[in-house]
Design a binder for these strands. Structure first.
Lengths: 125, 125
DNA sequence: ATACTGTTATATAATCAATATAACAGTTAA
DNA sequence: TTAACTGTTATATTGATTATATAACAGTAT
C-alpha cells in the first residue's frame, strides 16, 4: 500500500492514513474484501507507531469502510457508495457555506467566485 | 463590543474573538483609529482570561488589523481592504480546491455542485 | 500619586496526537 | 501443539495547544 505521510502537516497522521485509504477504496485501487496490510506490517513499512495505525483503522471501521477481525486482519468492506456520497455532499456544503459567508463580509462578487469555481473544476483532468 | 463565545466549539476561544473582531472591522462596525476595549475590561466583560484576550489581540496586530501601544491601548489600524480581500480570496480558493478534489473522487457532478453553490449564494440576503 | 493601559513570567490543568512497550487473545498452518 | 502471524488492551511518557490564574513590571495620562 502506498501512503505518503507528512510530519509537518497540521493534519494528524492517523487522519492522513485514513483519508488516503478511503481514497484508494473509492478509486477501487483497494477492492471489496481485499486485505489491508496488518497494522504491524504497515507500522514497520511507514515507520509510524502501531497505535497510530490502529487509530486510523478503528475510525475506518466505525465509518464502514473496512471490517476488522481479531487474528485475521482488516478487509475492505462492501461499499455503500451512495451513503459515502451523501456524507461528502455535506462536507461540500460546509465548504460552500464558508465561501458564502466570506464573500458576504468582504463584498466579493458572486460572479467572481463562480468563475473561479468553474475554472478550477475544469483545470484538472 | 459584542462577542459571542462558545465553549463547546472546537474553534479556540482566542480565534473566536479574533475572527469576530476582524468581521466587525471589515463591516465598519469598528472604525479606523477607534479604541478597542482594554484587554482587562474585555476579560471582565466576557469572563475570559486576560491572557486569552491578549493572544487574540496579539494575532490581530500581527495580521495588521489593530495597533497596540503599551499604556494606551489597542486601536483599529488603517485598513488595507484590498489586501484583506486578496487574503480572503486565497481562503476561498482553498475551499474550492477541497470541493473539487472531493467531487472528482466521489464522481459528483460539476453541475450539481454549481447549482448548490448558486442556491446557497442566493439563499441568504 | 493614582488609575488606567499593556507586558512578562510562572504555574497549573486539560486535551490531543504520537510514541513505546508489554501482555493478552484469536487464527492458521506446519 | 507449537510457531507465527493477526488484532486488543493497558500503561506510561512526551510534546504541543488551549485556557486559566496570579503577580510583578512598565508605559501613559490626569
Amino acid at each position: 500500500m502506498k501512503l505518503i505521510i507528512s510530519n509537518s502537516s497540521n493534519v494528524p497522521i492517523y487522519e492522513q492514513i485514513k483519508n488516503q485509504i478511503i481514497d484508494q477504496i473509492l478509486k477501487d485501487d483497494l477492492k471489496e474484501d481485499e486485505a489491508l496490510p496488518s497494522i504491524r506490517t504497515l507500522s514497520a513499512d511507514i515507520k509510524i507507531s502501531v497505535m497510530t495505525i490502529k487509530k486510523a483503522y478503528d475510525e475506518l471501521e466505525k465509518e464502514g469502510y473496512i471490517i476488522t477481525r481479531q487474528g485475521k486482519g482488516s478487509f475492505v468492506a462492501p461499499k455503500n457508495l451512495e451513503l459515502a456520497k451523501e456524507e461528502k455532499k455535506k462536507e461540500i456544503e460546509e465548504h460552500i457555506n464558508k465561501i458564502v459567508s466570506i464573500s458576504k463580509i468582504y463584498n466579493i462578487d458572486e460572479k467572481e467566485v463562480l468563475d473561479l469555481f468553474k475554472y478550477m473544476f475544469e483545470g484538472e483532468s
